[in-house]
């Protein structure tokens, strides 16, 4: 059912992905003391997530308009401290409603 060829592909795919994650985590065992490096690493998560979200979210649905509705809903709910599930689910629900309305016209 699973061909040898596919297994080789899988090995390359999963192997590369794993090595990229594993090597730095295993090598950086010591606590970094350098203040600048610590500051840099402190800002990495927010920088990565921000760059991944914008502008990509605006192209995640069928139209920029409905995506913007989902984006706005997520921003507002997150601003008022809602949990990850609530924000994600409400954002999807708002896009669905917007898509349904858009289909009417």
């Amino acid at each position: 059912m699973i061909s040898k060829e596919f297994l080789l592909y899988l090995l390359v795919l999963a192997g590369t992905t794993y090595l990229v994650r594993m090597i730095p985590l295993v090598l950086c065992k010591k606590k970094i003391e350098n203040r600048f490096l610590l500051s840099f690493l402190h800002y990495v998560p927010i920088a990565v997530l921000s760059a991944m979200t914008i502008p990509a979210i605006f192209y995640a649905t069928d139209s920029i308009l409905t995506a913007t509705v989902g984006f706005a809903a997520a921003i507002i709910l997150a601003y008022f401290g809602q949990s990850l599930v609530t924000v994600a689910a409400a954002s999807c629900a708002c896009v669905l409603i917007a898509e349904l309305i858009a289909k009417l016209f």
């Binding site: 991944m52 924000v87 994600a88 409400a90 954002s91």
Partner: peptide, 11 residues
């Protein structure tokens, strides 16, 4: 948009 919603909730 689910994943992006989550990112926003973190950021």
């Amino acid at each position: 948009v689910a994943i992006y919603g989550m990112f926003i909730a973190i950021v």
